[in-house]
Amino acid sequence: MLSKESLAKIDRELTKYPAEQKRSALMSALRIAQLEHGWLSNDVVEAVADYLGLPPIAAMEVATFYGMFNRQPVGKFKLTVCTNLPCALSGGADAGKYLQQKLGIGYGETTADGKFTLQEGECMGACGYAPVMLFNNHTMCNHMTPEAIDKKLAELE
């Protein structure tokens, strides 16, 4: 279920915590597993739990608690727009609307070609750079004006 590379990355995370506290690496392990599989199916969650010697339900609790884990398949590109108040005051909500219209999907949906998933996000701790958009969980895009959005989408085509 998990590649050698993923397991090696998980092993590296494990070194951060005391030997009897493997559970501490669970969040990272799930993140790494998601990177490999795109989303966390039940099987993947269970595989991670098994690897860390945890009850599967304990891993499920974590996989469903943290917002950046995908519990459904997502498109190749997951775009998360912050629409919280500070961002909204500087165009965050508008950027979201613009993306909806450009991609023809609503929040939580994936384009028919499986390319884009759009999500409404909560504060990303980057309000000063609004509108902000998180790309595939790991890359922050600042000042996402309509022009910047067009440019980013063109890059991804």
Binding site: P55, I57, M60, T64, F65
Partner: peptide, 19 residues
């Protein structure tokens, strides 16, 4: 051995066993 949990967050959290 934990067989039940409360996956989900906030109002969406539900008691369940692993699927």
């Amino acid at each position: 051995y934990q067989e039940l949990g409360m996956p989900g967050r906030g109002e969406h959290s539900e008691i369940m066993s692993f699927i």
